[in-house]
Design a binder for these strands. Structure first.
Lengths: 250, 250
DNA sequence: CGCCAGCTTGAGGACTCTCAACGTAAGTGG
DNA sequence: CCACTTACGTTGAGAGTCCTCAAGCTGGCG
């Protein structure tokens, strides 16, 4: 699916876009697939992971109804998944940041149920699912971890259902900000200085709001001194207030 | 989790509440867990399935934050799953009809992420997850099927997100009716004469609507000649119209 | 410089919610 | 047997949140 680079990249192992890297040395190993595996098991995982050249912004990882072949891990950048309903409307189903796995919605029917597109230049690890199945048969840890991953995505989705069906615009947006902040923290990035990789349109679509409402709520939060926004740059001034709003009953 | 009956039930194998039944002879085998397995594999599955006495209406199968031990298959009756958010509001996450599997949201964190309660007298098969993991390591079909099941639930949930975040009250309710109708058909029940096992409150909660709105839309559909409703009895008069409404863009 | 995409802000309207009253059926106790 | 209670559902009127439509702003790029 991803073109594998024909020659090895130069030796800078610290560049996150660098394809010449392995799971054991990847600085995301603590939050990505290897997290459940022993050292010798990571080596086996490493052998089936394919690392392509970076995707440019707007390039697709896969498209809805493509034959399902692989799941993907984001190494750098950011990816959005979205699906098209019968009626032609787009639904953004998720944003994927470094260390996160996507594509698992394709397992069920051997076709991807969504499309995935890079929201900025992104480095991606591709993991052929047939190999994951093999490996899962051999390594109980791997099987267990994958069951967990799938189950956690179900729980996430159910939380999201609650969010969009029972919460106000302010609660939804606060919730997204808090989520991205927490995921930044997990990667040892600042939880308060955030760069939003997605457009307002994507945010609105993901949260079940129009772009205008998203814009208005951002402005309201800024006016209240909770955040500062300048386009995609977001400074969180009062994370506790946002958490409170996010967990507010309706 | 479920009390296993101390003595075998009488020999009427045709009663769906009968605990003395096995997967091979279960009339739901074509749509339940065995569907992906070979004859000799079903026997192995059968050995780990525990069949309890029927649950009465209102009895819980498990509760949110209980230790995760098993997944469950509905053999007869109907079960609803729901979760409580921090703010104490209830979110109905799914309705489970005969042949359907629930409880998989517990895999991710070894605790159930939702509670499950019988909406009417229900017979349930309990399948300890540790045994499923073992069996999955031995039977690639079993592993594959479980991956599929989990993945399909993700896709379902994402569809539901679209439903509640982008569709009108009429579209949501039409969608639910069509879904239940189709699931009835899968069990060789009438797709047009439906008994709704859940209350209006549950329907509203599931669809992100208030009970009043649900009631009004039912009335509107009836007035338009699409359905007849008398409490929980539902007669579908124009399934095509409902399908059209359900798949309407916004 | 002009154009376009993305975003912001305002005004009015629509859909659904809230509040409230009423209806129906089932169960309880006198 | 009937009055009472309770749970559940229906229907109506008014209010609120968010959407729609519209105009204007900003920054990047040919």
């Amino acid at each position: 699916m991803i073109a594998v680079s024909e020659h090895n990249a130069p030796s800078d192992k610290h560049c996150p876009h660098n394809a010449a890297i392995n799971c054991a040395s990847c600085r995301l190993s603590a939050i990505c697939l290897p997290l459940a595996l022993a050292q010798d098991e990571i080596v086996q995982l490493d052998e089936i992971v394919q690392r392509g050249r970076p995707l440019q912004k707007g390039q697709h990882l896969y498209r809805e109804n493509d034959n399902f072949t692989s799941v993907f891990a984001v190494r750098s950048g950011a990816v959005k998944a979205y699906s098209m309903s019968d009626s032609g409307e787009e639904q953004v189903t998720g944003f994927y940041l470094p260390g996160e796995i996507l594509g698992m919605d394709g397992i069920g029917h051997n076709r991807y149920a969504s499309s995935a597109v890079a929201m900025e230049v992104s480095a991606i690890c591709e993991i052929p699912f047939a190999n994951i199945e093999d490996l899962s048969g051999k390594l109980p840890n791997m099987q267990k971890h994958f069951f967990k991953l799938l189950s956690q995505e179900i729980v996430e989705d159910q939380r999201h259902i609650t969010l969009v069906s029972k919460h106000t615009a302010e609660e939804r947006l606060a919730s997204l900000i808090v989520s991205i902040s927490a995921r930044n923290a997990r990667r040892n990035l600042s939880p308060l200085n955030i760069r939003l990789p997605m457009s307002r349109t994507d945010i609105g679509n993901f949260l079940g709001l129009t772009i205008e409402t998203v814009s208005r709520v951002f402005s309201r939060f800024a006016k209240q001194g909770l955040i500062e926004v300048d386009k995609k740059e977001l400074v969180v001034l009062d994370i506790d207030a946002l958490k409170t709003i996010a967990s507010l009953g309706h």
